[in-house]
């Protein structure tokens, strides 16, 4: 990464971290989901900065256009009671300590990892991805299709079970 790029990376990274934090902290589910949307978009930008443009667009397509919309649907169809901020019942203490420990450990380990800086990224991402999907990773790609089938059937069965 060039100097400008790494500065952009850090900047967008701060945006991502802040929106992620807001998403898990706020007591209004709608804000949480919207903040998640901002976070996902920021991560998509990070992907672009890391020269993974295809992943970046997939992130927007599937996550922001798909998952966030699904979550909003779920929220709105179950909305009546949840318009107001959630009441207590959260337990911050222990979770905060544990998350802090894990995060701290990871950060320290990352700082000490001493990985090399990546070289120049290939420009023809789409070509290479296509070759990978239909070459070395063909099996994983096909398996993904079965996973999708499973998810569709599972979601339908769960949603239908409730009608009986």
């Amino acid at each position: 990464m060039s100097g400008g790029q790494s500065m952009l990376f850090v900047l967008v990274g701060v945006v991502a971290a802040v929106s992620a934090l807001y998403a898990v902290l706020t007591r209004q589910i709608l804000r949480s989901i919207m903040s998640l949307g901002a976070f996902l978009t920021a991560v998509a930008v990070e992907f672009y900065v890391l020269a993974a443009d295809f992943v970046s667009v997939v992130q927007i397509f599937v996550y922001v256009g798909g998952v966030v919309v699904l979550m909003l649907f779920a929220l709105m169809l179950s909305a009546s009671g949840e318009r107001h901020p959630l009441a207590g019942a959260d337990r911050p203490g222990l979770g905060a300590v544990l998350a802090y420990l894990v995060g701290g450990g990871l950060v320290v380990a990352s700082l000490g990892a001493g990985l090399p800086e990546p070289g120049k990224a290939p420009a023809q991402t789409v070509d290479l991805l296509g070759r990978s999907f239909l070459g070395g990773q063909l099996f994983a790609f096909e398996l993904m299709g079965v996973v999708l089938l499973a998810a569709v059937v599972a979601a339908l069965v769960v949603a239908r079970g409730e009608r009986q």
Partner: peptide, 17 residues
């Protein structure tokens, strides 16, 4: 790596609390 560590910890915190 640091960014991803921080994000992971934030997510974990959310799940736990």
């Amino acid at each position: 790596l640091v960014l991803s560590a921080v994000l992971f910890a934030i997510g974990l915190f959310g799940v736990l609390t």
